[in-house]
Amino acid sequence: MNNVAVIDYGMGNLHSVSKAMESLGDDVRVEITSDASRILAADRIIFPGVGAIRDCMAEIRRLGVDAIVSQALAASKPVLAICVGMQALMESSEENGHVECLGLLPGTVKRFGGETGNGVLLDVDGKRLKVPHMGWNQVQQRQAHPLWQGIEDNSRFYFVHSYFVAPTDASLCAATTDYGHTFASALSKGSLFAVQFHPEKSQHSGLQLLRNFLAWDGRA
């Protein structure tokens, strides 16, 4: 039995992620929980997140999820962070006027269009792009990784976000996506893999990534 813990801190598409994982086989057991002992006893862990980073970080710290994620990574347990779960790993976020995050990965979280000073985001033809970035977009793989197994480069995944991660260590970047400019849409370090897109909403490619996560031993 492949035991997967989905961290429950009240923020995230917990049930859609859980259902997607369960659809991958009868040998997959998924538990949505905030209990540290149960999370750390699982074979692998999903760290989801949806909503404002200030509220997410408040619940993460209140429930001790910060310590749980750190312990899991220290033990080389495979961890998949999704959307705001990925953003929470960084040092800080511009959202909500500046929020301190977990600092497990070097870099910050920035708002689309923030670099222009007026919040306007333009494509290469000068056409204004909507924020949030919502819908299907291509993901360019920047490094070989077991979680890309069976997924063609430039496959489309589903995004919903107004903020993006900007890692200061380029070696962490596992994939990029273009939306007004190029941003990191997947990060990798040790037994951690983090994605800005929602694999549970990304049909074939998303399910393949989740299938790869179930088979991953936490080593690149």
Rank of each mutant, 00 (worst) to 15 (best):
A67W: 10
R54L: 08
P146V: 09
M90A: 10
S171C: 07
F159I: 04
S185D: 08
Q141G: 00
G114N: 11
P48Y: 02
W148I: 02
V99L: 07
N154G: 03
H161G: 13
H15Q: 09
I53F: 06
P167G: 08
G126L: 07
M90D: 04
S202F: 02
L187Q: 04
R29K: 15
K77Q: 15
T33W: 10
A166C: 08
G150A: 11
A166E: 13
L40P: 00
G113V: 09
S34K: 08
N154F: 05
Q196E: 15
G10Q: 04
S16R: 12
A215V: 08
E100C: 05
S34Y: 04
A166T: 14
E115A: 12
A72D: 14
K201G: 06
A52I: 06
R54P: 03
E94K: 09
P132Q: 14
G126H: 10
F112Y: 12
S34E: 06
S205Y: 07
Q138Y: 09
R211V: 00
H204F: 12
L207V: 05
A72P: 06
S188V: 04
R142F: 01
R142M: 14
C83P: 01
K201N: 11
V120K: 15
V28C: 11
N2M: 15
G119A: 11
E59F: 11
V131H: 03
A58E: 13
G180D: 02
Q87H: 09
A194Y: 01
F159S: 09
S23R: 09
S205N: 15
G49V: 07
M21W: 09
I60K: 05
L24C: 07
A88W: 00
I151M: 02
Q138C: 13
D26W: 03
V120P: 05
E95R: 03
L14V: 08
V131D: 06
S188I: 02
M90L: 10
H133R: 10
M86N: 06
R219D: 03
F159K: 01
I60M: 13
H145M: 07
A166M: 11
L89F: 11
E200I: 02
A67T: 11
W136E: 15
F157W: 11
N212A: 09
V99T: 13
G135E: 01
S18Q: 10
D153E: 08
M57A: 14
F159Q: 02
Q71N: 12
V17G: 03
S70V: 13
W136K: 11
G117L: 08
Q71W: 07
I82P: 01
W148A: 00
F47P: 06
E91F: 10
F183A: 05
E100T: 14
T108P: 05
M57I: 05
M90F: 13
T33S: 11
V28W: 00
